[in-house]
Amino acid sequence: MNDLPLADLDAFAAVARERSFRTAAKKRGVSASALSEALRRLESRLGVRLLNRTTRSVTVTEAGRRLVERLAPALGEIAGALDQAASEIDNPAGTLRLNVPTIVAREILPPIVGPFLQARPAITLEVTAEDGFIDVLAAGFDAGVRYEERLEKDMIAIPIGPRVQRYATAAAPAYLARRGVPQHPRDILDHATIRHRFQNGIALPWEFGEGETTITVAPPATVLANTIDLEISAAVAGLGIIRTFEEFLVPEIKAGRLVPILEEWVTSFPGPYLYYAGRRHMPPPLRAFVDFLKVRQRPLSR
């Protein structure tokens, strides 16, 4: 009997409470015949009469009374759980788990996280920063942030952060005084460099320029690392030339610890995207974050 339809049990409890098919149907927004059919199915499955009904009255049998007494607490718990689940649409709570690149964790998320969590204080944000590409859903994340070339085709993507970013190249003043200033990307082949290696072991070549004028070089590395802090420190120490997201270099350039080079070869590319599996039945924290990003990026009306 564990497979009794919950809807039929709920229909029986409603009729038993009201002592009327018509009144119960009106309160539930269904027809009296639908409730009558539900009761017929339930009594047939149980093999016992639960209600005595005539054209003038509806009364509960002894078996029906015992069943109502046992059902009431359980149905109340279920109703409360459903109400709570529905309320999370307007008052989302829970944990939002994001997997993002290092650049996003350091430069793009900070101005977003504060206002979002202030608006949604019942949400807890968990962020994992890594530059490797993983299946975010299989790894237990609600969503990820990636750039165009790494977006899965079957995922939904919405913009997050700046819509244009740039790669820039720089070196310490002492290094340039010692080794000279490269005038062309190919000159870097004769220089020491600090390069980034992804967690899968791949160190991508450096691309300069855009479109038909792109030049790709794979210079020798003095330092090869998967942490930007070490890479920048190595560049500031004069160990070689670094090429990375411009946002990482700006503080060091402003402080005079690094000098931009090959500025005519700065490479622009589209900013990152938040991506997730689908629009239907999204976890409330993710839905709230997506809605927040859409409002944040909406242009102001004039």
Rank of each mutant, 00 (worst) to 15 (best):
280 R>Y: 13
247 E>Q: 15
212 E>L: 14
265 W>G: 03
273 Y>I: 05
257 R>N: 08
239 L>D: 06
282 M>E: 11
238 G>M: 01
249 L>C: 04
252 E>V: 08
223 V>R: 01
215 I>L: 12
282 M>K: 11
294 K>A: 11
238 G>D: 04
225 A>M: 12
285 P>I: 05
214 T>Y: 10
272 P>D: 05
238 G>Y: 00
267 T>A: 11
286 L>Q: 00
230 L>Y: 12
290 V>G: 05
271 G>N: 10
239 L>H: 09
232 I>Y: 02
284 P>E: 05
217 V>K: 04
249 L>K: 02
264 E>G: 14
246 E>Q: 12
226 N>Q: 15
212 E>N: 15
282 M>A: 14
250 V>P: 00
245 F>G: 08
251 P>R: 05
238 G>H: 01
284 P>S: 06
279 R>M: 14
228 I>F: 07
227 T>Y: 14
274 L>E: 00
221 A>T: 06
217 V>D: 05
233 S>V: 07
211 G>Q: 07
247 E>K: 14
284 P>A: 06
235 A>Y: 00
214 T>R: 15
254 K>S: 11
269 F>H: 07
262 L>C: 04
270 P>D: 10
211 G>K: 08
216 T>I: 13
277 A>C: 09
217 V>Q: 07
238 G>W: 00
265 W>D: 03
217 V>C: 06
216 T>H: 07
254 K>T: 11
238 G>P: 02
263 E>M: 14
283 P>V: 06
258 L>S: 01
211 G>F: 06
296 R>D: 12
219 P>A: 07
281 H>Q: 15
291 D>N: 14
262 L>W: 01
252 E>I: 06
225 A>E: 13
270 P>S: 11
221 A>C: 09
234 A>D: 02
266 V>H: 11
227 T>P: 03
212 E>C: 13
214 T>Q: 14
252 E>F: 13
238 G>I: 00
255 A>Q: 07
224 L>Q: 10
217 V>E: 08
282 M>I: 11
278 G>Y: 11
263 E>T: 15
290 V>N: 04
289 F>A: 00
273 Y>T: 09
235 A>D: 01
250 V>I: 12
257 R>K: 11
283 P>Y: 06
295 V>E: 15
279 R>C: 10
240 G>M: 05
218 A>D: 15
251 P>T: 03
218 A>C: 13
278 G>W: 12
232 I>H: 02
237 A>P: 00
255 A>D: 08
254 K>L: 13
292 F>M: 11
277 A>N: 09
249 L>Q: 04
282 M>F: 08
246 E>T: 09
287 R>A: 13
234 A>S: 12
234 A>Q: 02
291 D>F: 08
225 A>H: 12
286 L>G: 01
255 A>Y: 01
286 L>D: 02
231 E>A: 10
267 T>Q: 11
274 L>W: 01
241 I>C: 01
262 L>F: 04
259 V>D: 01
238 G>T: 00
276 Y>W: 10
289 F>V: 04
248 F>L: 13
263 E>Q: 15
258 L>N: 00
279 R>T: 15
280 R>I: 14
233 S>D: 14
262 L>S: 00
222 T>N: 08
219 P>Y: 02
277 A>K: 10
290 V>A: 08
214 T>P: 06
211 G>C: 07
